[in-house]
Write a protein that binds this DNA or RNA. Structure first.
Length: 255
DNA sequence: TTTCATGTTCAGCA
DNA sequence: GTGCTGAACATGAA
């Protein structure tokens, strides 16, 4: 599930669900620790409170009352669930508070965790680019260079952070640019459209509660499937691999 | 049984 | 250095 809109939604539900409550205990199993982690989640002191969060791209940092940050990455299949009672299946990280508990379920275990002194301890070594939701036009355009496929560039977290395979397809569909186009072949209007649609696509998903079937008419993620068709031309999607990922695009609308 | 999957990282190669 | 491909990670779902 998780690209930027999903992670932002996860963050809000965690903050709303267990924010401000006192931690009783925490455990993790099966998730990989980032090497910058200063301790294990079991070492977070009882009584610690989640005071807020920071999200950068697809990475989430929960602000702890100790001053440290709990880093969570949801990988490909992770999602949080506030629960009360039986532990949900595939729970890989569990935080028990006085009232209820937080599970991070992750069947595929491709997510990551860590306890950090600062989010920058994670972000800087990985040279993460600016967050895709707030990147300015000039900043994006100055970073958008090189001869590689534009879709590969959009998914490169060191260029901008937060766009993954699905939203890259949506952005390029709306900007009417084929995913294999070289970045340095984009015209000025196309570059501007790419920037505009990064923001619009991510916000549209947030507004729809990340339920892609609830996206506005005309967005491709509603119908991005093998038997789906372009909402404009009504011709079937072309499917191919770009940047190592399956890509859907419309050969009628995108140039 | 085989293939594919909304992510990240790294090795190998042109 | 740039950019691409494939693989690994681990497991469910089609």
């Amino acid at each position: 599930m998780p690209e930027l809109p999903e992670v932002e939604t996860f963050a809000r539900s965690i903050a709303g669900g267990v924010g401000g409550e006192a931690l009783v205990s925490s455990t993790s199993s099966g998730l990989r620790y980032v090497k910058e982690s200063v301790c294990e989640v079991e070492d977070i002191a009882p009584g610690t409170v989640i005071e807020g969060y920071r999200r950068h791209g697809k990475a989430l940092f929960l602000k702890l009352s100790s001053g440290r940050w709990l880093y969570i990455h949801f990988g490909m299949s992770g999602r949080p669930l506030v629960f009360d009672g039986d532990e949900p299946p595939y729970t890989r990280l569990r935080l028990d508070f006085e009232g209820r508990s937080l599970s991070v379920q992750d069947p595929r275990r491709l997510g990551g965790v860590g306890v950090l002194d600062s989010p920058e301890d994670y972000l800087l070594p990985r040279r993460r680019g600016p967050d895709a939701l707030s990147v300015g036009r000039e900043e994006l355009l100055s970073r958008l260079k090189g001869g590689r496929a534009v879709k590969a560039a959009l998914m490169d977290q060191s260029l901008i952070a937060g766009v993954g395979n699905l939203y890259a397809d949506e952005v390029l569909f709306q900007a009417a640019v084929l995913p294999r186009r070289r970045v340095d072949s984009l015209h000025e209007e196309e570059r501007a459209a790419v920037h505009e649609w990064i923001g619009r696509a991510l916000r549209a998903s947030l507004d729809a509660g990340t339920d892609l079937s609830r996206l506005p008419e005309g967005m491709m993620l509603r119908v991005r499937s093998k038997d789906g068709t372009c909402p404009r031309c009504l011709i079937p999607w072309s499917v191919g691999t770009v940047g190592g990922r399956t890509s859907y695009f419309c050969e009628g609308c995108q140039r």
